[in-house]
Design a protein around this nucleic acid. Structure first.
Lengths: 246, 246
DNA sequence: CGCCAAATTGAGGCATCTCAAATCCGGTGG
DNA sequence: CCACCGGATTTGAGATGCCTCAATTTGGCG
């Protein structure tokens, strides 16, 4: 197996195995996909609203985000993605991007040509079902965020996001006990939560003073997981992770 | 073809044809699915958070909504669905419901057994791709709502929801020119937009006074479509309808 | 060591909420 | 056909969460 394929396969399988069960045949199919790998700078666009991409991306390393820009200047981050995620899987069957994709940190991304992926999913129902399931989880996470935006206060919303990002990283082996990377600037957090950077500062300060978390040096420390979950009204079932009964 | 099958097929095809192109073989496959039909009262639960359904639903008639309830009493409506929509397609591959499904109006729903649907999608890649695409659009609509919640004021958010609900109904032949059913109570609108029923009253009043819409007798009249779109910062591409270039 | 971006703090303003009262409306019984 | 009832909508007034703008501090990095 080539080094490129290995870099691609390792995070992908880690991610898929955190939510689903599948056969070695599927793994072999992944291994044969003609992928290429590209690096991006922080803030660099990977795909723009309106693009018609010819391949799907998978995050090999670093963080990327999906975002929608409004004519009036509004900026809404709709998802963060880490190693193993496929942030634009929908481009396989929806021609036009209805949002953008950019690197948050320095990021390495594997590109899978649409035609190869279409051919393989048409040939292998198990593969199609597995990736279809990923789309379903994508939608489930939007539901989680939507509920956070609509019915949680800034305080609970921030707690909720930290719960999610910690659990997702832990599920793919990127977190230690009560500690995980958190490379987001307060601007990013603000645009993800529909708040202002200023208010994010105050909100994080409140979470810290409540003894729930610490946030420094691009890392999140969970000081009181149960307390954080309570404040967040956090129910991890929307992540559809294997460990959490599905 | 049985009357039951006909009631099921007509709205489903209308919906699918509004966004995608597909073969007669797929239609025949749909026609052979062993569906059953059930009626629901307004407010009645169709599926609850935590359920493990054995079939997918398709709306034959009426409106249903999907919603998430928070332990603290919060209630967030995450989607409205009309005839032809499949509001719990994700239950095909995600075991547990992470949200509920209830009838908004008196509603008729067709139930498609999971095993039949799994068998047919495994056998027919075109069918799988078509429904997978529906899941992708589902996710796209959540992105649209998420952005509305995060970065639009109550005024723009309401305008946005009305734009969407009008276009979606028109796409499946349920709207006349500048007029469509709108059977939602202000409580429903409030829970969908993350606002209060009281504030919905004031917001709709403002839209009316601005000469953009009228809302009475469970019907929405569009008085100024361009103006409404401008206020909403509405870009219909997230609906991935055929008419709107995809 | 100094620079620039990011984070923090303060003060005043506005959008939306809460609570409470009044009115409207659709359906039902007389 | 009218009177009534309960749920839905509307209106008012005061409270609050988050925003805006502006100034200051911190921290990573050349």
């Amino acid at each position: 197996m080539s080094a490129t394929t290995d870099r691609f396969l390792r995070p992908l399988l880690r991610r898929l195995q955190s939510t689903a069960t599948f056969s070695d045949t599927v793994i072999r199919t992944f291994a044969e996909l003609p992928i290429t790998i590209r690096d991006f700078e922080p803030g660099q666009d990977i795909l723009r609203d309106g693009d018609r991409p010819e391949h799907c991306a998978m995050v090999v390393e670093g963080w990327v985000c999906r975002l929608k820009l409004l004519p009036g200047g509004g900026r809404q981050i709709i998802a963060f993605h880490i190693a193993g995620d496929m942030p634009d899987l929908q481009s396989l069957h929806l021609g036009v991007m209805d949002h953008g994709l950019s690197a948050v940190t320095p990021a390495t991304v594997a590109l899978i040509p649409h035609d190869a992926l279409r051919e393989q999913t048409a040939r292998r129902p198990e593969l199609a079902a597995l990736l279809w399931r990923e789309t379903m989880i994508d939608a489930a996470m939007f539901r989680g965020w939507l509920t956070a935006m609509g019915r949680r206060t800034a305080y609970g919303r921030a707690a909720h996001l930290f719960c999610e990002l910690y659990l997702r990283q832990r599920a793919v082996g990127l977190a230690e006990a009560n500690l995980c990377p958190m490379p987001l600037r307060q601007t990013d957090l603000a645009d993800a939560m529909g708040l202002t950077a200023v208010h994010i500062t105050r909100t994080i300060g409140a979470l810290r003073r409540a003894g729930l978390i610490d946030l420094q040096a691009r890392a999140l420390t969970i000081r009181d997981w149960d307390g954080l979950c309570r404040v967040a009204e956090f129910d991890p079932s929307y992540l559809h992770l294997k460990g959490v009964a599905d």
